[in-house]
Amino acid sequence: MEILVCIKQVPDDSVEIFLNENTQKPDLEKVTPVVNAFDTYALEMAVRLKEAAGGEVTVLSVGDDSVKNSLKNCMAVGADHAYLCKLDDYNETDTFTIAQSLKESKEEIEKQTGKTFDIIFCGKESTDFASAQVGPVLAEMMDIPVITGIVDIEEKDGGVETRQETEEGYHVISCQGLCLVTVNKPKYDPRYPTIKSKMAARKKAIDELDTAKAGVTVLHTEKVYTPAKRSAGVKIQAESAEEAVAQAMDLMKKAKVF
């Protein structure tokens, strides 16, 4: 099974980020760039599918030269090939344009290598802008089915069977032929790169593609601001559940929730 995984490099989301008063943009200067967490889940799921069904995993990203390091990190945890679609101001580019660049890149990779992808993985959203649009927009542009927010996948009858997480439980969705999936947090964690795989990945080449659709962004950010701080919640401590519920009801009545 030939698998394409689309990844985005984002600022490390485990550190607190502040607004730069001068630029009125998030201050990211000292924040380490990492692979978007949902994309790491997508890659791990793709690599597990490859290990079960055979084939190869190719990773693709749109971004500047610094993204090569993230792509190498992907090669250290199971990806076989990596491509960078060069676009320096990728963070100023809207999701539609990114999706279009990914579509062109996918076609270019297929042309260059002669392979045809059977499935495309994306994270369900990025941890920086969290629009959750790129995956579905890319599928729409390619006119292929999309299954969003999956937490498991396996090969079945030449196609795939996926588990999509919903608020009520799971949907089991099967698909034959080329499709795109977006990935939510599965039950397992992505594997760690080993010293050996990391050293080997650092030596591998990242192929560059000239397929970016620059300068066609139609969405523009009007304002960036820090979200208002939430006031501290109320902690109810009571002897019994009944008493705790009664206190909660009382508070909600006072707040005119009812």
């Binding site: 380490t32 390091n69 964690d189 760690y192 790169p193 010293i195 050293m199 650092r202």
Partner: peptide, 17 residues
């Protein structure tokens, strides 16, 4: 540079495991 790269992996491993 490669050790710096490995260092972030080791830190991640140690923090989690």
């Amino acid at each position: 540079e490669e050790a710096q790269d490995l260092l972030s992996d080791v830190k991640n491993f140690c923090d989690k495991e």
